[in-house]
Nucleic acid binder design. Structure first.
Lengths: 319, 319
DNA sequence: CGAAGTTCCGCTCATATGAGCGAGGAGGGC
DNA sequence: GCCCTCCTCGCTCATATGAGCGGAACTTCG
């Protein structure tokens, strides 16, 4: 018997004919059986052979920049609600961010319905999404955390909530406050500010949120970079692995409470977990563990990312 | 609406997921519908979309040197019983002949059953097939025509019938006589020779035959090359287009009787048409019209050829 | 604001399909 | 040569599937 599971060229060609009629011309097996004077069972077996021997190849394709096959695999692997993986080359962070921003914007445009309430975290990737956003159902948009001013970085991104709300045509619940303040008392006071309180009161009704995911390492999280060395190490010692919209979690995705928690202005771990869908826009190979932690902890259940990270995530999740 | 028939990335990924489960994992639409909480109709529509948009690509493949897809197309186009097209490069005639010989030998090994009676024509391609033949059901093998000695060409091919019969392990009906003789009387006399008469008496019981196809042009038919200039032109004038085992037919495949016919030692047009399956081994781009004529006339109903000629045949048949 | 077209959805029912089974046939070991 | 085994084939019956239909929602005009 030949490698292909066929006996000779006639068999091979017959199989190919049957396969073409079935797969390409869309005829039914019964029709084909009649045409070739075979039993429909024989036709079915020929088709099985054709599949098994690789005579018929079925591929799930690449009609755009979205790697649908990889998206699907990542979605299944991590049990996500939505997943968009672009096959953007990942060498220039700004380019990746822009591409992912566009992809996320399209995703959001597609899935947001007028009944939703949208929450936005403070992150450059979220800002990139806002820039790419062209259309959105008229939903309320809620700011989930204070902003962190990064020296030398354009901070217009604080306007993200307002920008998105303008595109959507819905109310904006936003405030000007930092993500973390020096002490718990100040945080407490800030939270009582009318704009902050109003935004916070809406957090529990948020149905979909968009955030970034940071790893607890230099340059991998805005919050990390804004934290003092001693506290960084203390938090690292306590297992902090990922940061999502100011929420810190360990490798299992369990929230890590700390002194820093009380000084934060923003959504809590419990609130974040309660949001039905949290979409994270993530890029960079260093964030594998962080993303896995965020997903395992139920903080994030949708992803927009690029193929390199997606593959690394699938590989790492399999272990 | 996007080009792909999908509305956005989520739709795209969903479609891809469904397609993967259906086409790659072989799950049923009902199962998939349950998994994704969709109606099975929705799943069916997504799959239709996926096919229509090119998200799912199905190809009939090339697992060997046989171009199954092209074979199939040629078979359908010309209404052949069997068809084997190899994708042999067609620049070196001897190589092509050897490849086609092998392919034809495999085909014959596969389709000949012990109930068959095999007829063989005199042609280099048939000889090539005989050389490649390794196994054959024990059937009688019948010589269909006399041989034409070509100066400077190895004529051991007259032994083809004996060789094939030896491989098969069946009786051989062969004779030593030329394909054409100078006058009808000689032909008549030769036909009465015991070996010749015996072979001829078997022709009507032949169930499958293998032959070459010649075009009526220099170097395109052994018979043409062995015919005098005057007769060549006379026959060309009468529309001779193809030569199959000594039988001459016009462009419509209708036999052309002539003075030459009476001088031939071999199968007649009527006998050839009566053979259930005549397999022609053909190569060379110059034979397009000849092959079409032979097939249209019902002289040939199976083909072993190479991709260039196959494509030309399909193109020419479509006109 | 209303009407008409358009699209999308899920139903019914006839048909196609797959799983599993037993009969028949070919091939191999004794 | 004979028997045994393995393989192939086509059947039955439960299930999956496709065609066509009518209703709902959404658009697009007037």
């Amino acid at each position: 018997m030949a490698i292909h599971g066929t006996r000779g060229p006639a068999q091979l060609v017959l199989t190919a004919s049957v396969a073409r009629r079935y797969y390409l011309d869309g005829r039914s097996k019964v029709e084909i059986a009649q045409e070739f004077s075979l039993s429909r069972f024989k036709v079915a077996r020929l088709l099985d052979d054709a599949r098994a021997s690789g005579l018929v190849r079925i591929e799930i394709g690449h009609p755009g920049s979205v790697d649908v096959e990889l998206s699907d695999r990542l979605m299944s692997t991590l049990g996500l609600k939505h997943c968009v993986v672009t096959d953007t080359p990942d060498d220039v962070p700004a380019t990746v961010r822009a591409h992912l921003g566009t992809a996320a914007a399209e995703l959001l445009t597609e899935i947001i319905t007028p009944d939703d309430v949208l929450g936005l975290s403070w992150a450059r990737s979220v800002s990139a999404m806002a820039n790419a956003l062209e259309r959105l159902a008229p939903v309320p948009v809620v700011q989930l955390t204070g902003a962190l001013a990064r020296p030398g970085v354009d901070d217009s991104s604080i306007e993200v909530v307002r920008d998105v709300a303008r595109v959507a045509g819905g109310p904006a619940y936003f405030f000007y406050a930092p993500m973390a303040v020096p002490d718990a008392a100040t945080a407490q006071a800030l939270r009582r500010q009318p704009e902050v309180a109003q935004a916070f009161s809406r957090i529990d009704s948020v149905t979909r949120a968009v955030a970034g995911v940071g790893a607890w390492a230099p340059e991998q999280s805005t919050l990390y970079d804004a934290t003092g060395e001693a506290e960084r190490q203390e938090l690292a010692r306590r297992g902090v692995c990922a940061e999502i919209s100011g929420v810190l979690v360990d490798a299992d995705g369990k929230p890590v409470r700390s002194e820093l928690t009380d000084r934060m202005i923003g959504i809590t771990a419990e609130q974040m977990r309660a949001i039905p869908e949290v979409i994270a826009i993530v890029y960079g190979g260093a964030k594998v563990r962080a993303v896995l932690a965020a997903v395992r902890g139920g903080m994030v259940n949708s992803l927009v990312t690029h193929s390199t990270l997606a593959e690394a995530l699938i590989a790492a999740a399999g272990e």
